[in-house]
């Protein structure tokens, strides 16, 4: 059975008395240990799909299930939500905005353990140290504040936090688009290594075709709330693309392609 199952998903927001249909009926399924990408321009609904999957956006119609279960209800926290949080975690685009500015790295990383009542003080210490090491940060980072870290180091902390509860699914929303190219390469390598080591399932959103192609086995191209085309990596490499929209996005990304 697929680990992530989305069928007929619609997300509708009310804005100024008007209904905005951000996601307009999409279907997709992601197998365990697969890495699946959503690519499209801003406003295409790709981030909203991730948000609906973890309960941050309303599922207006259809379903968005992870491991057969629907996300927790918006704005309510219960024991069921804690179980959900242990299976699914999200990494956001902006490491400047997603870490609490007045919490040390140590607090950021130990909080999930405290909330979930995992381990005593020594066990937490051990797990925080191990988590830092896993994302390539040495122990000197443990008591620093976010403003004392570079963008890449912050995103490493965000990845470490997402992994504290040992989830099986990571939802990645443009995890490297705020980073310089050299730092992007390091963070992408880190994510690939962790996926392999831990058998993680990725659903990753990016506007950058090359990033999605590098990281994902299959991808869906989104436009105006709909999926216009699903491709696997091999089809992409052969250029077996059906839709003009995909071709246009691809051409734009190849115009940026590095010189070999």
């Amino acid at each position: 059975m697929a680990l992530i199952e989305i069928a007929g998903l619609e997300v509708v927001f009310a804005a100024r008395g008007e209904a905005v249909r951000a996601v307009r009926g999409i279907d997709l399924s992601v197998e365990p240990r697969e890495s699946f990408g959503l690519v499209g321009e801003s406003g295409s609904g790709k981030s909203t799909v991730l948000r609906a999957l973890c309960g941050l956006a309303p599922v207006s119609a259809g379903r968005a299930l992870i491991d057969g279960r629907a996300p927790p209800a918006l704005g309510r926290i219960g024991s069921r939500d804690r179980a959900f949080a242990r299976r699914v975690q999200m990494v956001f685009q902006d490491p400047y905005g997603s870490l609490h500015p007045r919490h040390t790295v140590d607090r950021v990383l130990s909080e999930p353990l405290l909330v979930h009542g995992l381990g005593g003080r020594r066990e937490r210490d051990r797990r925080v140290e191990a988590a830092l090491q896993d994302v390539g940060l040495d122990a000197s980072f443990r008591f620093r504040y976010p403003h004392q870290l570079s963008g890449g180091q912050r995103q490493r902390v965000a990845v470490a936090r997402a992994l504290m509860l040992e989830p099986s699914v990571l939802l990645l929303d443009e995890p490297t688009s705020a980073l310089d190219a050299s730092v992007q390469a390091e963070v992408l390598n880190l994510l690939s290594r962790l996926r392999e080591e831990r058998g993680l399932t990725f659903l990753m959103v990016s506007h950058d075709f090359a990033v999605i192609d590098h990281m994902c086995d299959r991808l869906a191209v989104m436009q105006q709330g709909r999926i216009v085309e699903v491709l696997d990596r091999e089809a992409l490499a052969r250029g077996a693309v059906r839709e003009d929209y995909t071709r246009a996005l691809l051409a734009a990304s190849q115009a940026h392609a590095p010189v070999q």
């Binding site: 190219a181 050299s182 992007q184 390469a185 390091e186 992408l188 390598n189 690939s192 290594r193 075709f209 090359a210 990033v211 192609d213 590098h214 990281m215 992409l236 490499a237 691809l250 990304s253 190849q254 940026h256 392609a257 590095p258 010189v259």
Partner: peptide, 28 residues
């Protein structure tokens, strides 16, 4: 393409490309 400085070359190499190799990206 003929950039000589290792920094410039490194910046160019660390970008992923569609259809490029799957292994770890070169880092700077």
């Amino acid at each position: 393409e003929q950039a000589r400085h290792p920094y410039t070359r490194g910046l160019l190499r660390c970008l992923p490309a569609v259809g490029g190799p799957r292994g770890p990206l070169p880092t700077l």
